Computed example of a mutant assay.
Amino acid sequence: MKTVFADHWYLFLIKAGSNWVVSDGGWSSGQEIRGAPGQLSLYSLGEAFHGEMNPIEVLMLFIPRDAFARQAGRLDRLNNTIIDTTRGRLLSDYMLALERQLPNLTHDEVPAIVRATEAMIAACLTPTPHSLEDARDGVILSLGERARKVVQARLYDPRLTPACLAKSIGVSRSALYRLFEPHGGAARYVRNTRLAAAHRALCDLTETRQIQQIAGSFGFTSSQEFSRAFRLRYGYSPSELRADISRSTLHLGRDPVIEGGRTLGEFLRTTA
């Protein structure tokens, strides 16, 4: 029987919780790191270590050693370290974006994703003068994830303009335009994200705020502007949506169960 030695590396991105790890051998012998949410670390399965994980949610990406034979020495030196660099943060964003996109990938798209992932790992962990150009597709995906997080965090802020978004994610206005061109531009992406959030709020049977208050909480300073944009996006006004939900609730009872075991509120929240 052939014995297979697992000497891959793996990237360890903490989404929630914490850990601590001490290396027991290799380049990083005796080195201890303590991880916190948002931190990305690299570990080698070829080196012994011990530690502790508190209640934790992580995203792990395993890296076959054979795929990075030329960079093996440099990656070994990163064992049991936190990748706290600009490129490391790009790689973190890429991993999060990849996690979001995986359920939508087709079988034919997998080889391209593998190549893009390998290029991102090389560019961010063992950079060369041309490595970022090779990782262009991955960088675009990373910046898209970074922009998505900024928009979600600032939906309430009417000052979130394309210029502000470009500055927040560290790109030029022209680069931001190319990034959001498939969405009709950054301004449209921000507006549609705000409208979707407002739609979900209006479908929430526990939401008691007035429509104007809901609009303001998602960055719309004018109720008329919000109503026009909402109707253009969904084909009906915010007041019509709320009235329909109220009538349905009165007729069927609070949060009735519909097909598939979902409640009406759960169903409506998926339609935005």
Rank of each mutant, 00 (worst) to 15 (best):
R231T: 15
P162F: 06
D93S: 14
V139A: 11
L141E: 12
F68G: 03
I82N: 12
L13Q: 05
T208P: 03
L264E: 00
T106Q: 15
A116L: 01
R242Y: 05
A48K: 13
G261S: 07
G73R: 07
A229V: 12
R231M: 11
I121E: 05
E47P: 02
G184Y: 11
E32M: 13
Q212P: 07
W9P: 04
E32W: 08
S18N: 04
R115M: 04
S248M: 06
T117P: 01
V58W: 00
T221D: 09
A116F: 05
A186R: 10
K15A: 03
L75H: 01
R233N: 08
L11Y: 05
A72Q: 03
L96F: 02
R136N: 12
R154E: 13
L90K: 03
F220I: 12
R188K: 15
L176P: 08
E118N: 09
S41Y: 05
C203N: 12
D137R: 14
R65E: 14
S222E: 15
R34K: 11
G216N: 11
T161M: 13
V151W: 10
T263A: 00
A197Q: 08
N104R: 14
S223I: 10
G73F: 08
V22G: 08
G265C: 13
C164D: 15
S92C: 02
H251V: 03
Q224P: 07
A198N: 02
A122D: 04
G138F: 04
H130K: 10
Y43I: 11
G144F: 06
T206N: 04
N192A: 14
P256S: 06
E99D: 13
P64M: 07
A229S: 13
Y10G: 01
L11D: 02
C124Q: 06
L143I: 05
P182Y: 09
R136L: 03
P37S: 14
R159W: 10
P162S: 14
T206G: 09
P129G: 04
F62P: 07
E52I: 12
Y94N: 05
E52K: 15
T3R: 13
I214D: 02
H199D: 00
R34Q: 11
D134P: 01
T85F: 00
L11W: 08
S131N: 04
I63P: 05
H107R: 15
G185T: 09
Y189P: 08
R89Y: 02
N192M: 14
E57D: 07
G235E: 06
A153C: 01
T263R: 02
G25I: 05
S217I: 00
E99G: 10
L78W: 04
Y43C: 03
D244Y: 13
F49S: 12
A122Y: 05
G138W: 05
M95C: 10
I113G: 04
L264N: 03
A187C: 12
